[in-house]
Simulated assay, not measured.
Amino acid sequence: MRKTIKILISKKDIQKRVKEMAKEIVKHYKNLSNELILVGILNGSFIFIADLCREINVPHSIDFMRVSSYGNKTIQNKKVKIIQDLNRNIYNKHILIVEDIIDSGNTLKRILQILKSRNPKSITVCTFLDKPSRRKSKVFVKWIGYSINDKFVVGYGIDYAQKYRHLPYIGYIL
């Protein structure tokens, strides 16, 4: 059965906001003494990180992690398993974690713990979408594309049962 999707954030608005975020990121990292690595969290961030990296005009490289949350049905008992780890050593590097969406913050909190244990020079986080009403773990996100209400969204890399990632906008399922 086909789902009805209502546009929440248009393609034009996404493009504009990504450029604005990139300008803020460039300003922050303009005087780097060490390498900047953008770390995309797969699968959802792949479109956002592709658009973002083309707008960031300070030297940087890209790497990816794929993680899975599993466990029983309670948030507190979920564990984060690394499915695909970084290919690079991040010791003494500046790390910018690039997320598609943050809701509970539990997975991001664990990713931050893992990456901090590898002694990077710095770690910051940017996300395209934030659902602050769903936050369970305290995490600091420096750059947020949009804060949204607690709706199930799709598009711009975000899926529903591996569908709808290709949509050039953010929509929600009616």
Rank of each mutant, 00 (worst) to 15 (best):
I9T: 10
L8N: 10
Y160S: 13
I101E: 00
N89K: 15
V26Y: 01
I123W: 11
A50L: 02
I83F: 08
L167N: 06
D13Y: 07
I9Y: 13
K19A: 10
L32I: 11
G155N: 03
K78H: 12
S61C: 06
N57V: 09
L108K: 11
V98I: 13
R165V: 03
I114Y: 09
S117Y: 03
N149C: 11
I114T: 07
Y172H: 11
R17Y: 04
H94I: 02
Y164V: 03
G157E: 00
Q84T: 14
I97D: 03
I49P: 01
N149F: 13
K109L: 12
M1D: 14
S45T: 05
N43M: 08
V139H: 12
V80N: 05
L86Q: 08
D13Q: 08
P132K: 00
I7Y: 14
M1C: 12
N77Y: 04
F128T: 00
G155T: 02
I25P: 00
S117R: 04
K81P: 05
K131A: 08
Y146I: 08
R118N: 11
C126S: 06
Y156Q: 00
V18E: 10
L8K: 09
K138C: 15
K27V: 04
L96D: 03
R17S: 12
N87S: 07
Q162K: 14
K23M: 03
R66T: 12
N72Q: 08
N92R: 15
K27F: 03
D63P: 01
R17D: 07
